[in-house]
Amino acid sequence: MDVFMKGLSKAKEGVVAAAEKTKQGVAEAAGKTKEGVLYVGSKTKEGVVHGVATVAEKTKEQVTNVGGAVVTGVTAVAQKTVEGAGSIAAATGFVKKDQLGKNEEGAPQEGILEDMPVDPDNEAYEMPSEEGYQDYEPEA
């Protein structure tokens, strides 16, 4: 019985440690998101679009440190934060509304985080759909 109880105690310690790591990862992701939003706020009209992409990228980098179902929630929060940063930029006159959601080359930025393969159960990952990809044929 002692062996059984000791095993359960060790398992509990492992769960607590994993929860603490997840909590730490979420806190880091939130900190990076805040950094990115402050970065966007300090940019001029020309830099705002690039700044919004930076927020998304920093958040995406930190999301990889967070495991399990938390990833889905962090990704949703990050996307809403990026959308909010863009709205703030438009409201303050840093950028025109028609410039939001495009990178410096004018290509749409939507789907940055949505296409990231995420499995809350950590069982399997699927690649994003290939609808947006084109076949590449090298020139002879």
Rank of each mutant, 00 (worst) to 15 (best):
D2F: 05
V3H: 03
V3G: 01
M5C: 01
G7Y: 03
G7K: 08
G7E: 11
S9N: 15
K12L: 13
K12E: 00
E13G: 04
G14V: 12
G14Y: 15
V15G: 00
V15N: 00
V16Q: 03
V16S: 08
V16A: 05
V16W: 13
A19G: 02
E20Y: 13
K21V: 11
K21A: 06
Q24C: 04
Q24T: 12
Q24Y: 14
Q24I: 07
G25C: 04
V26M: 09
V26P: 00
V26K: 00
A27Y: 11
A27P: 00
A27Q: 14
E28N: 01
A29S: 02
A30P: 00
K32Q: 08
T33L: 04
E35M: 11
E35T: 12
E35G: 04
G36I: 13
V37W: 12
V37Q: 00
L38Q: 10
L38W: 05
L38S: 05
V40K: 01
V40M: 10
V40F: 15
K43G: 01
T44L: 11
T44R: 02
E46S: 15
V48Y: 07
V49P: 02
V52I: 04
V55I: 14
A56M: 13
E57T: 05
E57G: 04
K58G: 00
K58H: 11
T59V: 12
Q62D: 01
T64P: 05
V70C: 02
T72Q: 13
G73W: 11
V74A: 09
T75G: 08
T75M: 09
A76C: 08
V77W: 14
V77F: 10
A78G: 06
A78H: 09
A78Y: 13
Q79F: 06
K80I: 08
G84Q: 12
A85N: 03
G86T: 05
S87H: 10
S87Q: 10
I88D: 06
I88M: 08
I88Q: 04
A89E: 05
A89D: 04
A91H: 13
G93Y: 02
F94I: 07
V95P: 09
V95A: 01
D98N: 14
Q99V: 11
Q99P: 05
G101Q: 05
N103R: 09
E105D: 15
E105W: 01
A107L: 07
P108D: 14
E110A: 13
E110G: 02
E110M: 09
E114N: 07
E114D: 15
D115E: 13
D115A: 11
M116C: 08
P117D: 12
P117I: 03
V118G: 15
V118Y: 07
D119N: 07
P120Y: 05
P120R: 09
N122G: 02
N122Y: 02
A124P: 03
A124Y: 15
M127F: 11
M127T: 04
P128Q: 07
S129L: 03
E130S: 07
E131R: 03
E131G: 04
E131D: 15
G132T: 06
G132I: 13
D135N: 13
P138G: 10
